[in-house]
Design a protein around this nucleic acid. Structure first.
Lengths: 142, 142
DNA sequence: CTCGTAATTGTATCTTTGTAAAATTGTATT
DNA sequence: AATACAATTTTACAAAGATACAATTACGAG
């Protein structure tokens, strides 16, 4: 896991976390680390740098929020792969259109009328609005 | 073993296991998977999804406990027989409810808000009303 | 047909990996 | 010196993977 050339200056007045963030960021932006590449685990890198693994974890988290890497519990952390060329928001809505059309096709095939489908959707959406009042990052569980 | 349209987002903050559970659940409830049908083996599905087979096994176990499927060591996993409810009209509407919930679940997993989903549905339904004014039993195809 | 062995399928358990929160350390500031 | 605050470490935990195992089936030798 080629990240061995990272160096921490313990005497520096910039925090260790910040140092890790900056150096990893540099290697990602300069292309030394390519999309999909796996980074060392928090514990591996921590051992190399003689630092606590949670400090590395915090740095990874920041990089994650910056959109540079993707951390996945139980799997590891990877350089972010840009989903594809093109507008992200556009693709997102396109995906919604796809599954919506698929759903409507199924319903039509099953012989339901537009009115029936419309009524059912309104009913279910209303139910969800009650149960999940305008939240984001829903941790579903039942 | 038609379960190839399942998709895992490793960057999502919902666990892989939960993603599998939700999507299989949707396909069972919507009738895309019928009682008695065999699901892919844990290893097959795991290979497709690029995931550890034990993660799939955990998802299957949860679905088993939910009463949706039946996992049998050495044999495989099968869709469970659902109790037949009420009369024909009731069952028909029930089916619509199922596929609607399935659709909304998928959309929610993909991070769409209720408002977005609602807008998209209205748009697509309007389009269909124009193309197929007040028809029943539309034999659409994608 | 019967038996035994190999292959297939789900299960159990432990390890690895990242996450979260409390406890500690260090450093200013008063 | 006492206090407060930020950074780090400690500790416990949750999700996913690795490995070994048990139940069932498939299949060939006899």
């Amino acid at each position: 896991m080629t990240l061995s050339d990272i160096h921490i200056d313990f005497r520096s007045d910039t925090a260790i976390t910040a140092q890790i963030v900056e150096q990893v960021k540099g290697r990602v932006l300069s292309g030394q680390l390519k999309p999909g590449n796996q980074l060392p685990t928090v514990r591996q890198l921590a051992a190399e740098l003689r630092v606590n693994f949670n400090t590395v974890a915090r740095a990874y988290r920041i990089l994650d929020e910056l959109g540079l890497i993707s951390t996945q519990q139980g799997r590891g952390t990877y350089i972010w792969e840009p989903p594809e060329p093109g507008n992200a928001a556009e693709r997102r809505l396109h995906a919604l259109t796809q599954i919506t059309q698929h759903f409507l096709n199924d319903a039509a095939l099953m012989g339901f009328t537009v009115d029936e489908i419309h009524a059912e959707i309104e009913r279910e959406l209303a139910r969800r609005l009650i149960e999940q009042p305008a939240e984001k990052g829903i941790k579903d569980k039942e």
